[in-house]
């Protein structure tokens, strides 16, 4: 497994080339082109602003104004997470011709997924920061911890993507299962609500979810300008590493079956 992992690192160039191909191909033929990467999150933000200031006003949101911006801090990385996973559930079968016909390292494919969605996440950040500055949110020294949270999410997402992509070759059902699981997971994570909304004695349930700590990490460093709960975050990092190990182990073990099954 470690040798495979080393090989994967050697394919950096390939991943890079494929990610840029993915991004180029995505907007080829559209009028706005790359501009969509900015417009998409902006429109999303507007929709949420409208919903949460005009239609639906949640209680107990003291200190979380504008509320839509608070959501947006979690929503942007969550989109990265969920679309990476959804795409990785079909990435191997979509690229069957590569796996069967060319000598191609299959583990590159889920990585390309995760990283091209990561680029979209990065392109959404300027919008987020523009509004954070506009609303004078306290951007301070804790912002330096933001990349650490991103790193944890990369590891976690990669591990999950490996896990899902290799299993979905054998079980196509995973795709539908995953879509529903992700919806549930979204609401089980404090993204559209702050974790303070949950009664204190039930909060431990929320704590079991690793995405809780990642999302709160973003909310703390970006929106609230405070030190994230670093102990919980470190544990989350460990969990992310374990997930990555398990996901990659599974992928590596099933690798030989891909060419025949996809």
């Amino acid at each position: 497994m470690w040798t495979s992992l080393k090989c994967l690192l050697q394919y950096r160039g390939l991943i890079q080339a494929l990610v840029s191909r993915e991004l180029k191909a995505r907007y080829r033929g559209s009028v706005l082109g790359f501009f969509w990467s900015f417009v998409n999150p902006l429109l999303l933000l507007l929709v949420y602003t409208f919903v949460f200031t005009v239609i639906f006003r949640p209680a107990r949101t003291e200190g979380l104004t504008p509320y839509a911006l608070f959501l947006f801090c979690g929503l942007l990385p969550w989109t990265w997470f969920s679309s990476s996973l959804l795409e990785s559930s079909s990435v191997l079968s979509n690229n069957a011709n590569l796996i069967q016909k060319v000598l191609f390292p299959a583990d590159v494919l889920p990585c390309v997924n995760v990283f091209s969605n990561f680029i979209h996440f990065l392109l959404g950040l300027p919008i987020l920061f523009a509004f954070l500055i506009y609303y004078r949110r306290p951007l301070n020294i804790y912002l330096l911890l933001f990349p650490a949270v991103v790193l944890i999410q990369i590891i976690f997402t990669l591990g999950f993507a490996m896990f899902i992509s290799s299993l979905s070759v054998h079980f196509r059902d995973i795709r539908d299962l995953l879509a529903n699981l992700l919806t549930f997971w979204f609401f089980a994570t404090p993204i559209i609500y702050p974790n303070t909304m949950i009664p204190e004695r039930y909060r431990w349930v929320l704590d079991l979810n690793p995405m809780t700590h990642i999302m709160m990490g973003y909310q703390d460093t970006l929106f609230k300008g405070q030190l994230p709960h670093w102990k919980k975050l470190s544990v989350t990092l460990l969990i992310a590493l374990v997930v990555f190990y398990v996901g990659y182990f599974l992928f590596d073990r099933l690798r030989d079956s891909f060419a025949e099954e996809v």
Binding site: A17, R21, K24, G29, V102
Partner: peptide, 21 residues
């Protein structure tokens, strides 16, 4: 041409295919 992507140009495909090979 197994690894070609239809949306991008021949030139870009040469580079990506070359890297794959």
């Amino acid at each position: 041409g197994a690894g070609f992507h239809p949306e991008i140009s021949g030139r870009e495909n040469i580079y990506i295919n070359g890297i794959m090979l």
